[in-house]
């Protein structure tokens, strides 16, 4: 293994930044969604849950393609966004983060849904009879009891974002210092037959992924299975 070159370090930085930003956004987004899914009696629930877990089974390029269309300057999201003065979404850092959020959603959502379901009604009923309002019950009982599920969700979301390729390539392209994440840098090194750099990145990602899975396993939480 040779010392990684500066562009590799830039890719490490971008990868971590994308993973951190999308994990944070995902936790905020998935928590209320998971709470609702775990407790609703709505007949729409299976459909909504299926749509939200679609990224588990779809080829990443399919998601990437639709996101490219939607976020593009003429797309239903990218168009109004740019008209309102927002910057270009496709082939930008922001676009990659949005893509990661969509792609990694099930990996954050499912552990949270399972975690919330495992609490059951009883602790919340007890809290209610003790005078806790709905919001109070959520923050003082549901969140702390489901804390292990949050750890699992955050770790899985982060790790899965670090490992993504297809969505980023479709929506972010390969802009060094902007959208070039590790998996794409690896791809480029291989294309150019620079196997030493490729080895450094590939080996590093294996070590990282292994560490994550060992962490999750030792906490004995159920992790979602599926294609990625």
């Amino acid at each position: 293994m040779s010392t990684a070159d500066p562009s590799t370090w830039a890719a490490v930085r971008i990868t971590l930044a994308v993973a951190a930003a999308s994990t944070a956004a995902l936790l905020l987004l998935a928590t209320p969604l998971a709470w609702w899914l775990a407790r609703t009696g709505s007949r729409l629930r299976p459909w909504i849950e299926a749509v939200l877990t679609l990224p588990l089974v779809l080829p990443p390029t399919v998601i990437g393609f639709y996101l490219l269309v939607a976020l593009g300057p003429d797309g239903p999201i990218g168009g109004p966004w740019e008209a309102l003065g927002g910057g270009r979404l496709v082939f930008s850092f922001a676009g990659v983060v949005i893509g990661s959020i969509v792609f990694s959603l099930p990996f954050v959502l499912l552990p949270l849904v399972n975690g919330f379901r495992a609490i059951g009604e009883r602790p919340l009923e007890v809290a209610a009879t003790l005078g806790a309002t709905r919001l109070d019950r959520f923050f003082s009982v549901a969140l702390p009891i489901a804390r292990p599920a949050f750890t699992t969700a955050a770790v899985m979301g982060f790790a899965h974002t670090v490992g993504e390729f297809g969505v980023v390539l479709m929506i972010g392209g390969n802009v060094p210092g902007e959208t070039q994440v590790l998996s794409i840098a690896l791809y480029e090194h291989v294309e150019q037959l620079r196997y030493d750099e490729a080895h450094a990145i590939a080996g590093g990602l294996i070590a990282f992924s292994l560490a994550v899975l060992v962490f999750v396993q030792t906490r004995a939480r159920v992790v979602p299975t599926g294609g990625a």
């Binding site: 009883r122 007890v126 009879t129």
Partner: peptide, 12 residues
């Protein structure tokens, strides 16, 4: 003040 058959203490 409801005391359930199973004590149902907050585990956390």
């Amino acid at each position: 003040g409801l005391v359930f058959q199973e004590p149902s203490l907050f585990p956390h």
